[in-house]
């Protein structure tokens, strides 16, 4: 559209409506996708679906093993990635100063965050499954997901540690607390809301990830009894149901379950974080 020959007033009006349209389009897209999945998926929802075992490769029956598998791999990912990510952030923000090391570490985290998930899947297969001999199992999948969640948690922790006022640190050091005591008892509690949000982001990434677990976690239809058993988390189940044409109805149900879990976690943590901030800041 050549606006040069249109008066500024009119072009202003036209462009303003274009921007509004773009905003509404984004909202519309979200509503359509989420609405469609939920509307189509909810009919499949029942107690038997959520708490039942799949029958006939998932054509019938429920998704309990998939829910359990999702919880297992996600927990492993978060348990491994959180301490690494938070401590790395503490090192960068509180100990390292600005130097070559920090730049290198940051570039490393950036690179890690940008590696496509299927490449993580390849690595998980070559390293955890084959090289370490763990086989296709919950542990291999969970560890692969941990690598993906690490940069997310690290970055969020860095940002929130950075946002802790210097005066808190000074107040603590001036009392004769050591650097670590200051970090552990003052800086980290103050940064906790942001770190928690980061952990949840990392967790969400682990819950929804498919490509990275495609060849690391196996595809078993039963509840894994140990972390060395194969499993089939929800997204993987959805992928198999949908592409192998096993059951459209159960695919919708699985998709809806996935969305509800992600939504639920986000909402619950947001409320928790808000409460924590309220208590901390005395509002």
């Amino acid at each position: 559209m050549n606006l040069r020959f249109i008066s500024p007033k009119i072009s202003q009006k036209i462009m303003k409506s274009v921007f509004w349209a773009a905003g509404f389009l984004a909202i519309l897209i979200l509503l359509i996708i989420v609405g469609y999945i939920l509307i189509m998926g909810l009919p499949a929802f029942s107690l038997e679906f959520i708490l039942g075992d799949p029958i006939d490769s998932g054509a019938e029956g429920g998704i309990l093993p998939m829910i359990v598998s999702t919880i297992y791999v996600t927990l492993i990912a978060v348990i491994v990635a959180t301490p690494l990510g938070v401590l790395a952030a503490v090192y960068i923000e509180e100990y390292a100063g600005e130097g070559k090391i920090v730049k290198t570490i940051r570039f490393g985290a950036e690179t890690l965050a940008s590696i496509p998930s299927i490449v993580f899947g390849l690595f998980g297969l070559a390293f955890f499954v084959v090289f370490l001999g763990l086989g296709w199992c919950v542990l291999s999948g969970g560890l692969t997901l941990a690598l993906m969640a690490l940069p997310t948690i690290m970055r969020a922790s860095e940002v929130s540690i950075q946002a802790v006022p210097r005066s808190y640190r000074e107040g603590s050091l001036a009392i004769g607390a050591t650097k670590w005591q200051t970090v552990y008892k003052v800086v980290l509690p103050a940064a906790l809301p942001g770190i928690t949000t980061g952990i949840i982001l990392g967790m969400a990434r682990a819950i929804e990830e498919t490509a990275a677990i495609l060849y690391t976690v196996g595809a078993a239809l039963t509840i894994p009894e140990s972390i060395f058993d194969p499993a089939r988390p929800l997204p993987l189940h959805l992928y198999i149901l949908a592409t192998e044409g096993i059951s459209l109805e159960n695919a919708f149900g699985t998709a809806a379950a996935l969305i509800i879990i992600l939504l639920g976690i986000t909402i619950v943590t947001n409320i928790m974080v808000e409460r924590y901030i309220k208590r901390m800041m005395g509002r």
């Binding site: 984004a26 897209i29 979200l30 996708i33 989420v34 469609y36 999945i37 969400a204 819950i207 929804e208 990830e209 498919t210 490509a211 997204p235 959805l238 992928y239 949908a242 695919a251 998709a255 996935l258 969305i259 992600l262 986000t266």
Partner: peptide
């Protein structure tokens, strides 16, 4: 939109 799982985008 950023949080929707890619497998759900694919499914949709």
């Amino acid at each position: 939109l950023a949080g929707i799982p890619s497998v759900i985008y694919g499914f949709f």
